[in-house]
Design a protein around this nucleic acid. Sequence first.
DNA 1: TACTTGACGGATT
DNA 2: GAATCCGCCAAGT
Length: 106
Amino acid sequence: MDVSFRDRVYDLVGRIPSGSVATYGLVAFLAGNPRASRIVGSLMAHVPEGLGLPCHRVVYRDGSLCKGFSFGGADEGYQRWLLEQEGVVFSVDGKVDIARCLWDGS
DNA sequence: TACTTGACGGATT
DNA sequence: GAATCCGCCAAGT
């Protein structure tokens, strides 16, 4: 395969449907490296903006977001707002309800 | 070219 | 239940 792990991650993230979310670990798993979750995060932090990847749909395993790092906005509330606009459900904890909105990779 | 750091996550202590 | 360790790949220095 002449495609890098990185390219697979970009492709997968770009396929996350609106109203669903994926976790770093899930993307890493689908990309072929179940333990490379941190790599996914690292890639998201350096992903070319030109690809227009919906990075805001990628969250932690427990549904929380990266505090201090938001997508397209200066405050973390922006990412939550974006997801809510897409129909993603949030729990009372202020986290994404991944039990209901987790993308299954289809 | 080599080393270090980094949006994570699961297992272990 | 909380804290720590290890593993993975890419990008920056």
